[in-house]
């Protein structure tokens, strides 16, 4: 059948996009599934004048317009595109994340044939970076890492008092990316930076330490909410490394409905026991008290290459200057 030959051809040429934000889930009033199998999903899109969808993603697709219409598309980075279509227009579209607004006077009506990942492509690891809006209009960096197409359980990785999550969890060196390994296990992997880490909005200026548990757990909450909305899942797994485990656990105790399970790695817990680093953090003039002169930030410098050492020397240097 020529049509299926065409479809197959297009399928193998198609790029894939993570099905991060499914239009059917975020805008069910505008998108209806007409047909779905393991190769394609056919959607009917209907936007009434001034309808505006939330941000959503499409994989590579063919769009067939059923009406003359006009639309404004906005990308997550704020890029705005205006497009005018006539009934019968048939166009190929590459994978995209956008929102759509019908800025015309007539219904915008179209059929979308979305192509699922080709078998070759399904073996590939995909990464996509985006920002989630958090408290006080902050922008929180999130990376989504997937492998293949059957991920269900989302897992969110939270860094500690360490370099940002894309450095800690997703080093682009074979065998060193935890995100890569977890995605290959079939998990739907997300990593985030709270305010003050990496490309997220800086923590508010202060002479005192920034990035406390109140702020970080609020940021975790913003990202968890976004992931659950986008994936349609009720719960996710929270993973925290060291201090990230403290914050993940604090969030989990307050929001147990959102968390399926907690994974903690090298995290401390509240128990009075010897701690090799206590002296480094103590006020030398007031033993038994934290040294409040530590400053708002930990500066992590030359020693970072020495991360391979059994003990991170920047911790041994005491004040973490």
């Amino acid at each position: 059948m020529p049509r299926s030959v065409l479809l197959l051809h297009v399928l193998f040429c198609s790029l894939s996009a993570a099905w991060a934000q499914d239009p059917v889930k975020v805008a069910p009033q505008n998108y209806k599934v007409l047909l779905e199998n393991d190769r394609v999903r056919v959607l009917e899109a209907l936007l009434k004048p001034s309808d505006r969808t939330p941000q959503h993603s499409h994989p590579a697709r063919v769009v067939y317009s059923l009406s003359d219409h006009s639309a404004i598309f906005r990308s997550p980075e704020g890029r705005v595109t205006h497009s005018v279509s006539k009934a019968g227009d048939t166009v190929w579209r590459d994978p995209v994340i956008h929102s759509e607004e019908n800025d015309g006077k007539a219904d915008s009506h179209a059929i979308l044939v979305e192509f699922k990942e080709s078998p070759a492509r399904a073996e590939a690891l995909t990464r996509s970076d985006y920002f989630v809006t958090g408290e006080s209009s902050s922008r929180l960096f999130v990376r989504h890492v997937t492998f293949g197409s059957n991920q269900q359980l989302p897992i969110l990785l939270v860094p500690g008092g360490s370099p940002p999550s894309e450095v800690l969890f997703d080093l682009p060196v074979a065998g060193y990316s935890l995100a890569d390994d977890l995605a290959r296990m079939g998990l739907n992997v997300f990593l985030m930076n709270p305010r003050g880490w990496g490309k997220s909005t800086p923590a508010p200026n202060s002479a005192e330490a920034v990035g406390d548990f109140k702020q970080v757990t609020a940021d975790i909450g913003s990202v968890v909410g976004d992931i659950l909305r986008n994936t349609g899942q009720a719960r996710l797994v929270l993973f925290g490394h060291a201090s990230g485990g403290l914050w993940a656990a604090m969030y989990a105790t307050q929001h147990q409905d959102n968390v399926a399970a907690l994974v903690l790695l090298n995290s401390m817990y509240g128990v009075d026991a010897p701690w090799g680093l206590r002296q480094s953090f103590e006020d030398p003039n007031h033993p038994g008290t934290f040294d409040a002169r530590a400053g708002p930030y930990r500066l992590h410098s030359g020693g970072i290459a020495r991360r391979l050492e059994p003990i991170d020397p920047s911790f041994q240097q005491g004040r973490l200057a």
Binding site: G161, G196, A203, A209, V210, F290, G295, Y297, L320
Partner: peptide, 8 residues
């Protein structure tokens, strides 16, 4: 790099 320090 600057890392927020409240964790200490």
């Amino acid at each position: 790099i600057r890392i927020p320090g409240a964790f200490r």
